[in-house]
């Protein structure tokens, strides 16, 4: 079930077929499998555009990794692959309605491999994998589909086979954790955007996943809501993979950053090294985050303090 794999952390170039490094051999020796491992993952949109192109990466248990890249780089698609939703659809019969004359349809049916906690993602163990990976979507309205917040948070536990009474208790605990217990019986549309976002997180936490995949967690939040949400994410112990354009949050939360563009890993390494590399970032539609610029300024020119009036 577990094939040979290469570890690609701490490297900034990933396209070349580099030989296994010393780090790889170390990780081969350790018994615990990586939290997330993608091997040659490919995916095409129905219209034929390549979303993911032989993508490889490995994330160890407990890591907090940022996924950055321009719009359309394949970040969201990658996150969806983590719980096997997309490959399952790709092999589904409905594709024929669209891709019957597509010469590359076969390559789409061979979507590479994803391992979650050592378990290969396929149709058979999809439910098991989805239990381990918690996906938080960008738009809370996509995720909060139930009539009340409480029902929504209990949705996962009920599907995992909990009795309604147990699911209710668990849901209330999770809502308590994101500070929404008072709103439990309200319909989602009556909550503020920040509260809905936290309710989404509660709904995912209720499934007790070991991996959290967050898509743009801070998008559209006001500064206070963003701060709360960042602190909330920080307090969670799961392995985290965060796709975001909010590079200041990335600097704050994630020690490691993976830059992807056009479905390929461009750079993978320590956040501060990658996000301070201005030529690399601008080549891929990103900017050096303000926090790093300010930091560099204050450390290199300590005499200059005219930013704030004294």
């Amino acid at each position: 079930m577990i094939g040979p794999w290469r570890k690609r952390t701490q490297k900034t170039e990933s396209q070349s077929e580099a030989p296994a490094s010393a780090l790889d051999q170390n990780s081969q020796l350790t018994a615990s499998p990586a939290s997330i491992r993608l091997h040659d993952l490919c995916y095409q949109y129905p219209d034929g555009r390549q979303a993911l192109d032989h993508l490889r990466l490995t994330i160890q248990a407990g890591e907090c990794v940022a996924l950055v890249g321009p719009n359309g780089a394949g970040k969201s698609t990658l996150l969806l692959h983590l719980n096997g939703i997309l490959p399952g659809r790709t092999t589904g019969g409905a594709l024929h309605s669209h891709g019957a004359d597509d010469p590359q349809a076969t390559s789409r049916r061979n979507p590479g491999q994803v391992w979650i906690e050592g378990l290969q993602v396929n149709t058979a163990n999809g439910p098991q994998v989805r239990r381990m990976v918690g996906l938080v979507f960008q738009d809370p309205d996509d995720q909060l589909f139930s009539p009340t917040i409480l029902e929504d948070v209990a949705f996962g536990p009920l599907n995992l086979g909990l009795k309604p009474a147990e699911a209710r208790t668990l849901a209330l605990q999770c809502l308590e954790r994101v500070n929404l217990a008072a709103e439990a019986h309200r319909p989602p549309q009556h909550l503020s955007f920040g509260a809905r976002k936290r309710a989404c997180l509660a709904g995912v936490l209720a499934c007790n996943p070991s991996i959290l995949a967050l898509d743009e967690p801070t998008a559209n939040l006001d500064p206070r809501g963003r701060r709360r949400f960042i602190e909330l994410i920080r307090s969670l112990s799961a392995t985290k993979l965060i796709a975001s354009h909010d590079l200041d949050m990335v600097v704050e939360l994630c020690p490691r950053t993976i830059l992807i563009d056009q479905g390929q890993v461009i750079a993978d390494g320590p956040t501060r090294a990658i996000l301070a590399n201005e030529p690399l970032l601008s080549a891929h539609g990103l900017e050096v985050p303000l926090s790093l610029i300010l930091e560099a300024r204050t450390s290199s020119e300590p005499a200059e303090k005219p930013i704030m009036p004294a």
Binding site: N83, F137, F145, F155, N159, G203, C207
Partner: peptide, 11 residues
């Protein structure tokens, strides 16, 4: 997207 969100929570 809602369906994806439901499936990813074990629906």
């Amino acid at each position: 997207r809602v369906h994806t969100a439901m499936v990813s929570r074990g629906w």
